[in-house]
Amino acid sequence: MSEPLLNIQHERLSFFTPAGEVKALNDVTIQMYQGDVLGIVGESGSGKSVTAYSIMGLIAHNGKIIGGTIDFNGHRINELTEKEMQKIRGNEVSIIFQDPMTSLNPVFTIGNQITEVIRLHTNKSKKEALERAEELLNLVGINEPKKRLKQYPHELSGGMRQRVMIAMALACEPKLLIADEPTTALDVTIQAQILELMMELRQKIDMSIIMITHDLGIVASMCDKIAVMYAGKIVEYGKTEDIFYNPKHEYTRGLLRSIPVLTEKEHRKLVPIEGTPVDLLNPPKGCPFAPRCNSCMKICLREMPEYTYITEDHYSACWLLQKEAYMKGGENS
């Protein structure tokens, strides 16, 4: 296969707080190819946003990558200077944030904010940039784009503002678009519209998307591959159908059990995952999910399992799989 567009290898990232070192990412490895749509799911604090932000160098000043490498589109991201990073941000990789209500600067017009990014990364004149901005607003399905360009963010609805954010992110036709829970702050009908728009645009522009969400419904409909994160680690990675129909990690199974199913006649009880996420200030020695896991074994508390490859691109870190793998290996030999 060709060079991956994004190749994160064994990334470790910590935040240094007054209370101590918060190990936000523990050995994260992700590979993405041109055109892939990857979903990263996990609960709050699992490191899904941090992973994405570290690709763009948007980590807060007290956060540091302390190990591993990030290669994106021919750049070794973790070794770039701030100046070099500025050329990539908004140009080769862009991001859409969770809350469109607060993500646009209230004191500048929409036109100003869109043309700003166009003029920053291209040699377009002011007039050309405005024309491109109008084109972009058309592309993201905003009516009367000429008028909108002169409006301020507070004059637009939440859904419209998220469309503007998307227009802004797509302005320079990035190779990779990161969507950090892009629909969490929107109501359901608008959510569907925004997701549909993203999928449509992905085909038009031929870009890859990283979809960060805790909504499994969204990943099921949008993503080719899914990374399930827990406590700063990818505990299971695989194609969407692998994750949904053949989940291997107890945490993934737990997540799937906690989705309500509307089609069932009987009222099936939702099964929550008991317990609370681990304290990343003092992560446990073994598997971080072990204290909440129903199938926890002694070894789980002592040692972190390696990845077991179920297929070439479906792997999971769980001792149960190691046992299975071992037993399979035993049968074969």
């Binding site: 500025q86 941000r89 993500s103 600067n105």
Partner: peptide, 11 residues
């Protein structure tokens, strides 16, 4: 948040 957006634009 809009400052983060500004940074993400590459300013």
């Amino acid at each position: 948040d809009y400052m983060r957006t500004a940074k993400a634009k590459g300013l």
